[in-house]
Design a binder for these strands. Structure first.
Lengths: 147, 147
DNA sequence: GACTATATGCAGGCGACTTGCAAGAAAGTC
DNA sequence: GACTTTCTTGCAAGTCGCCTGCATATAGTC
């Protein structure tokens, strides 16, 4: 497990430091996009300097090991890159629950195409669907008190 | 022109104040999503207190007169609602130029559908396509020095 | 014109994020 | 295994975007 992370870091040309291993391992274990604050509060990352976490996330994004998506709440969320689609910068839609603020990668779906203005070059697409996840929808339907 | 803005404000249940008229008028004249900073620097809005501008934009968004979209640069951009589609909260894709940081509403295109996790309720979709607009693409192709 | 509810402007503050710099640690070399 | 180089981390400080509270000004109503 750790070896796989080390290999991923090495193949990206990065040094294997405890900070990167723990951040990458945590994101890998979580498997869904999480915010800097979520990570900072996670036991495996707790104690790490906030600035280091910012920089580590930035480094991993630049290296293509993780991607980041912005929710409609303005918070960036970070998620490991699917292993079998190296270099794909989060190229899939995401679902953000406005209740529990959790985000899911909809990795099984292609990013829809859009006609852009004449002459424009598309470099990427950012598609966030927001609403309530099953758990939050059920909770609000049951109690009548959406968070 | 001003009368149309006054009517729009009144029909939304808002008072017609100079701040709202100038913000709404400026957004209407610009016709494309602009940031708080862009607005703040605009001659028609210059001199207005930044906090007032924040609150005015928030009020207009709440009233459904304008909508806001977040670019991948984290900045919220505000744009008037298409008159013929009242109540549509920016329900169309947007194109963001990473060069000049300008955004365009792709109002002629429907927001694509996406399959969300079982049981989830969709409340909205946020689709931003980014890249280079025709002008920036031409400039970088010509000079070889993209901003 | 007077009154009331609302909007505006100012002061102050919080949180997210960045930068600069010095100490510490990982890789490579001998 | 020890040394050196280069990169990373942690701390301090600061910037930027945005919000809150409160006093004053103003729009709308009678």
């Amino acid at each position: 497990m750790i070896d796989a992370l080390r290999m991923a870091l090495r193949s990206a040309g990065l040094r294997c430091t405890p900070a990167r291993l723990s951040v990458l391992g945590t994101l890998d274990a979580l498997g869904q996009p999480v915010t800097h604050a979520d990570l900072s509060a996670h036991p495996d990352v707790a104690g790490m300097d906030d600035i280091t976490l910012y920089r580590t996330l930035g480094t991993l994004v630049d290296a293509g090991l993780i991607h980041r998506v912005q929710g409609i709440d303005g918070a960036w969320r970070y998620c490991v890159q699917p292993r079998d689609r190296a270099g794909c910068p989060g190229n899939h839609p995401h679902f953000l629950c406005t209740g529990c603020r959790r985000m899911e990668c909809l990795v099984d779906q292609a990013m829809p195409r859009v006609r852009v203005p004449e002459g424009a070059e598309v470099r990427g697409r950012h598609f966030v669907v927001y609403g309530r996840c099953a758990a939050c929808a059920a909770a609000s339907a049951g109690s009548g008190a959406p968070g």
